[in-house]
């Protein structure tokens, strides 16, 4: 147990490259237990990559990924799959299994990882669906659900095994205000009631700031800033300020890097 017990996830000196392009260069992130931590950053800053590193779907080029006191890159494939039972991930699209109905989707982790009797599985599934308010949809197929409902079913599935860590990948994208409000409430509720560590990866500033206890802003291969939402709002780092306030041009330029405009137009031939 090298990792500090206070932190559910710790990234130490993590570097990751895609091809020859650096996505992360020597970053450190600590995610405290039992809190909602937001990881934010502009599109293309590698937030989803970070999530996949925490889930060990990707291997870092250097550095350590400690989750629940285990360094993931040192685990074998089998150990890794065991490890993931303690982790729940809510994917952007919900990622429900399209050939199973809502009940079987939520029951799936229970069926593969436990040998519980059918009656008990039924009870657990109904309890989890009740928690997300969709007990009535138990017999529907995923393609009969709206986007917001899919995400809630996926949330029920993610908490089926009572994980210690829940990771949300862009939970607020493409949701109407009501669905968004429901989701915000659910995340807060699950964290407080079950003592789950929640990690919200998002670029939706207002919603993330409203539920997160602590925020990281990543971008340009680095951690740009960290702190509580209030601290970050008043940050003196120009890049953080630009992101938090949403100004179109600033340290993160409006234009993608290019040759000089004038000379390209005139000297094109």
């Amino acid at each position: 147990m090298n990792a500090d017990e206070k932190y559910a996830v710790e990234l130490k000196g993590l570097s990751f490259k895609r091809g020859t392009r650096d996505i992360f260069k020597d970053i450190d992130i600590r995610i405290p237990c039992g809190k909602v931590t937001g990881i934010m950053g502009p599109s293309g800053s590698g937030k989803t990559t970070l999530l996949r590193l925490i889930g060990a779907e990707l291997r870092p080029d250097a550095g350590e990924v400690w989750v629940n006191g285990v360094n993931l890159p040192t685990l074998s494939r089998t150990e890794l799959f065991d490890m993931r039972k303690k982790m729940g991930v809510l994917f952007q699209s919900g990622a429900l299994f399209t050939d199973l109905d809502v009940f079987e989707n939520v029951a799936f982790p229970l069926r593969v990882h436990t040998k519980l009797p059918e009656a008990m599985i039924r009870d657990i599934v109904l309890m989890k669906l009740q928690a997300v308010g969709l007990r009535g949809a138990v017999q529907l197929m995923p393609d009969e659900l709206s986007g917001g409902m899919k995400r809630r079913v996926a949330l029920a599935r993610a908490i089926a095994l009572d994980p210690r860590i829940l990771i949300y990948d862009e939970p607020f994208v493409g949701q109407d205000p009501i669905a968004m409000g429901v989701l915000v409430r659910l995340i807060r509720l699950l964290t407080d009631a079950l003592g789950i560590t929640s990690i919200v990866v998002s670029h939706d500033l207002a919603e993330t700031a409203s539920i997160a206890d602590y925020l990281y802003v990543v971008g340009d291969t680095q951690v740009l800033g960290q702190g509580t939402p209030e601290e970050l709002m008043n940050s003196d780092n120009p890049r953080v300020r630009q992101f938090m306030q949403g100004t179109p041009d600033g340290p993160v330029p409006f234009h993608f890097p290019a040759d000089d405009y004038r000379s390209e137009l005139l000297g094109g031939r």
Binding site: R52, G55, E57, R77, F81, D82, M83, R84, K85, M87, G88, V89, F91, Q92, S93, A95, L96, F97, T98, F108, P109, V112, H113, A154, R157
Partner: peptide
């Protein structure tokens, strides 16, 4: 299609290869 809708990733994260 399973890959693009993240069903494969989702399986992996549930702990099923």
């Amino acid at each position: 299609n399973m890959k693009s809708t993240e069903q494969l990733s989702s399986l992996a994260m549930i702990g099923v290869d």
